[in-house]
Design a protein around this nucleic acid. Sequence first.
DNA 1: AACCTTGTTCCACTGAGCGGTACACTGTTC
DNA 2: GAACAGTGTACCGCTCAGTGGAACAAGGTT
Lengths: 254, 254
Amino acid sequence: MTAVLRTADVLSYLAEAPPRPVGVTEIAGALGLSKAVVFRILASLRDRGYVEFDSQTRRYLLGPRSLALGMAYLERADVRQPVHDALVTLSARSHETATLSFRTGWQRIYVDQVLPADDIKMVVPIGRLFPLHAGASSKAFLAFLPAAEQDRFFAENRRLPALTDRTVVSPRALRAELEQIRADGFAASRGERQPGAASVAAPVLDSHGHPAAVISVCGPSERFEARRPQATELLLAETARLSRQAHPGSPLPF
Amino acid sequence: MTAVLRTADVLSYLAEAPPRPVGVTEIAGALGLSKAVVFRILASLRDRGYVEFDSQTRRYLLGPRSLALGMAYLERADVRQPVHDALVTLSARSHETATLSFRTGWQRIYVDQVLPADDIKMVVPIGRLFPLHAGASSKAFLAFLPAAEQDRFFAENRRLPALTDRTVVSPRALRAELEQIRADGFAASRGERQPGAASVAAPVLDSHGHPAAVISVCGPSERFEARRPQATELLLAETARLSRQAHPGSPLPF
DNA sequence: AACCTTGTTCCACTGAGCGGTACACTGTTC
DNA sequence: GAACAGTGTACCGCTCAGTGGAACAAGGTT
């Protein structure tokens, strides 16, 4: 249904565009739709509270109903609860931050994190979308995708934007790295997504062997490097345990 | 646009229905749509990651993209930042929880809160929707709505569901109370929305004098009663200050 | 004051989406 | 274990909702 797809795209644009109000023309241009269509979609979404209207600037913003949607997602019984204990364990034993990510399309989203007691800690943005090529968690998803889907990723993302000066932007180099990650069973990175941050990440595999989620341990890169070997070991123990619990059919393997 | 409105309603149903997977038939029945329509809407939303599918039970759940939407709303520059300082002040001086709510339709949503240092504290659910008739924050919205809109509320909500055994369920009684609230400039409640909780709430008014947001101070009812007078005074000072900053046109008055 | 560029409205055409129906499937009940 | 009642899914011809191009109003900018 094109109308529904367009609606979803308008919402996504409002969400991903900087937290600044956006106009009809901008959205229409970005999504390749006519102004009239975008206007009508926004009017309807406004009616339902998903979108708000700044009558001053005549621009549109997300509305409070969007927040309700997000929090409802987090309250889904199966989303975080089963893994949260694993994150607590990982963070406690590694003295670093443990995170949980899911994939949507060619992006990834942080869904949960547990912070260490230490004064200096890394905090990741829950609910923010990141591309699938930068950082250990992203690469862990990509590396364990079925070969066909991995090919589709490279076909549809010929250019890999740099988030930092350490982001891998060469498809060739990334492909080589993914092969290594698959062989190792985990991904490592330093400052690819966020300057000064380092991490190890490994997937939780569902009953088909596809990555259902990725867990990472991450921290400030200087001190993390020393802890990396131990963190990796702890991480792999947990992801292996969770993958074994895989429950066929469910979107999540827990 | 009916398709967009229907899409919004399906999402809202998924969000407000308990955090349990729901089926096509249930949604179609609840929203008065044909199964085919709901099916197609869900298929499209699934394609964009707003909805997930549990192939085991053949039921639908919210997807991670919904979370991205919610967090993007919170990152809107103007949503919490300008009021957050006021909440910090209120919580620190009252030693209780200070909250911020917005309205969507005939519901209200917690958007921010600041907790006291005390071991025993009240915590409200950010991003959850509540009806406009139960609790001090809700009544503060209702009481300061323009008369015409208030009438529409009572016309469209002839039955007021009880959230607790102290919820005001009689429209007559509620109307009388709203008049009093309007005269006082603030609303008070005890256990109307949540057993054992008490609060005072007052609106922040925009340049038209309409309630743009509601701030409340709330806590465990036993200890809160003693602190209520002082909390009320502090609250009214802050809401008056914020209302004066009202900025015409913008959806928020800050 | 002329000029863009924005959001908004209009309108006749048309194909996307409608819903009634039929189907495949699963879990339950007798 | 067979009939059943429920589900989600697929089909298809009709029809009106939604389309997009163009015109309009209203600010902003030069």
